[in-house]
Nucleic acid binder design. Structure first.
Lengths: 342, 342
DNA sequence: TCCGGGGACTACAACGTTGTAGAGTACCCG
DNA sequence: CGGGTACTCTACAACGTTGTAGTCCCCGGA
């Protein structure tokens, strides 16, 4: 059906290898020949078949990106950054959604589909330390996320503990003492929720603030709706608090809405802190003070690391853990000098 | 490097074709042979090379999805739906970002990268009717978006005019007369902005409300920041209005924030209407009344149509235009009975 | 006993490309 | 003018898979 090297070669009156050489910018070709070939290519509208090229070269020019769900804004923005970085490296990106489901994540790692890519950037959510063996794969793999540390592969992620600690310390510094948390995962020991909780607790302890279990709101998926539900529960429970730390922005935004509907003023009555610095965080009412965990850097670094692994081939160096810098983005929902304002 | 049919065949003591037959569930194989082959596959950890299979079959099992930008929530949610629908059809999705740039869109349509896919779902933003010729490609193509109608390909999209008209009529029915618009594109004749404006104007005319140019806020990209900027300009201009129609949700949310910062109450002083029904629209303060344009249906239908085209091969039927149903999602930012409430 | 037919398997050639040899030709240097 | 060395191009064999056309053998029916 489609035009091949053979067709071009026939029209140009040369061998297919010469056409191939023209396409691949092989230097030793007579200008006249080159022109004839180029004319034939243009005439026939020839486009190289990348599948065939891949088969020969063993490279596809594509990488896979596996995330829980593009509907979660954090992962949408992450994917946007990854695709952009990949394009700069001349790669296209195949996006898979795992739904954060452990089985699907493990299946994906063994999926034949990956033979169509040169490597995988994998943001795990359902897997845990126990599944670390599944990460021993025979293709380049860069891990994102917080579910597994010390695995056999390169890992690029954020400083969850330190960043969460800084977030809580920011609230404490602005005079808050009773800080509710939205989005904790019950009994979890690995994962973003656990690490951010750990940072939160470290900050409390460092400032001699007792831990109050009744201030913790547990949820499953970090969706706006769960942030709202969790906040509703906290309010119904009747506990008093003067700040809320949403373990991510969408939770914080969901919670903030419920707070305001209930008549509390943000940040005067309750300060709200998020985590992720989504685009959306700058446009809520009030705009959301949050933590920029270095998402763009993570995406860029993940692609660079994967490209490096792909180039190296079997010659694998030791697995590296790379951590992004973070910073507090001060907006309106939690301000340093709010105590004076009231 | 990796395990091939040859390796499996050698270990199992059969020909490679027999291994291939086992994998492809060819019926006439002795159970004993099948078992030996399956044991060898398991032992060696054989995974079929999809690239080679693609080369033989001409099918890759992948489709491409081109959108302007995943950072725009609408396209993130669209991509999520497309990937989900594609997975149900056994396809993986390669996501490309065009930035809404005309040149990049046209380049993409001719890109050799597409040889790695069986077809393309293409959400155009920068191209226009003049570029319709670029859409004549020799692979299955389904067009989304509003830039080009009557092209040579299948087209799945929303009822922009009718939906926008319904949105404005909803505002009118709730007693609003001076309706500002945020997100119009100056001088545009095709595209979502133009169509939604058309629907808006039809509604005004149908109710005898004069068109007031000073109520129109022009922007380029439909970002939160542009919604905010546009609203700021409207306020500085000093025009009076009792409702705002954001031509999409992010614009409406950006605008709503500025409105509230300026001291206006939503919806009491100004009603706000969006368009898209993003997840986020349900969790703003106040939650955003908007139009659900049938995004999920569009994604599903686009994948189904593409799959059909792929199956049909060269035997192309006539290009079809398929339009999604829409509905007004009533939330807090614009309510039918607001007149009574104040 | 022979033959037809199907079951179980194999050999070979493709899919479209690129790497490896190598065959000519032209040119330069001594 | 011989011999080396570039240059220009071609033939062929892969990459890993699957379709086609077999081969062989066994069984049942005439």
């Amino acid at each position: 059906m489609s035009v091949t090297l053979h067709d071009v070669a026939r029209v140009a009156g040369v061998s297919i290898k010469t056409v191939s050489n023209v396409i691949n910018a092989y230097p030793h070709i007579r200008p006249a020949t080159r022109q004839r070939v180029e004319a034939a290519i243009a005439e026939l509208g020839y486009v190289p078949n990348l599948t065939a090229r891949s088969l020969k070269s063993g490279r596809t020019g594509a990488i896979a990106l596996a995330v829980p769900e593009l509907g979660l804004s954090y992962f949408a923005e992450l994917a946007a950054s990854v695709i952009e970085a990949a394009e700069a490296a001349g790669l296209v990106v195949l996006v898979e959604q795992t739904g954060g489901d452990r089985e699907r994540e493990i299946d994906l790692l063994r999926s034949p589909r990956l033979k169509m890519t040169d490597g995988l950037i994998f943001s795990a959510l359902g897997m845990s330390e126990a599944d670390v063996a599944s990460l021993s794969v025979d293709y380049p793999l860069v891990l994102l996320g917080e579910r597994i540390f010390g695995g056999p592969t390169d890992h690029v992620t954020m400083r969850n503990v330190e960043a969460a600690r800084a977030a809580t310390e920011y609230l404490i510094a602005s005079g808050r003492r009773r800080i509710a948390v939205v989005g904790a995962h019950e009994g979890e020991v690995v994962g973003s929720a656990a690490l951010r909780m750990q940072g939160h607790l470290e900050a409390l302890e460092a400032h001699g603030i007792p831990y109050d279990e009744s201030l913790i709101g547990y949820t499953t998926l970090w969706h706006r709706s769960n942030g709202a539900r969790s906040m509703t529960e906290l309010l119904e429970r009747g506990v008093e608090f003067d700040a809320v730390f949403g373990l991510n922005d969408t939770l914080a935004l969901g919670a903030m809405r419920v707070l305001q509907v209930s008549g509390r003023r943000v940040p005067e009555d309750v300060a709200v802190m998020g985590f992720d610095d989504l685009d959306e965080a700058g446009y809520s009412i009030p705009s959301l003070t949050t933590v920029d965990p270095g998402r763009a850097w993570i995406a860029r670094t993940a692609v660079e690391t994967l490209v490096e692994r792909i180039a190296k081939g079997g010659d694998v160096g030791p697995a590296r853990l790379q951590l992004a810098d973070f910073r507090i983005v001060e907006r309106e929902s939690a301000v340093a000098e709010v105590a004076q304002r009231v």
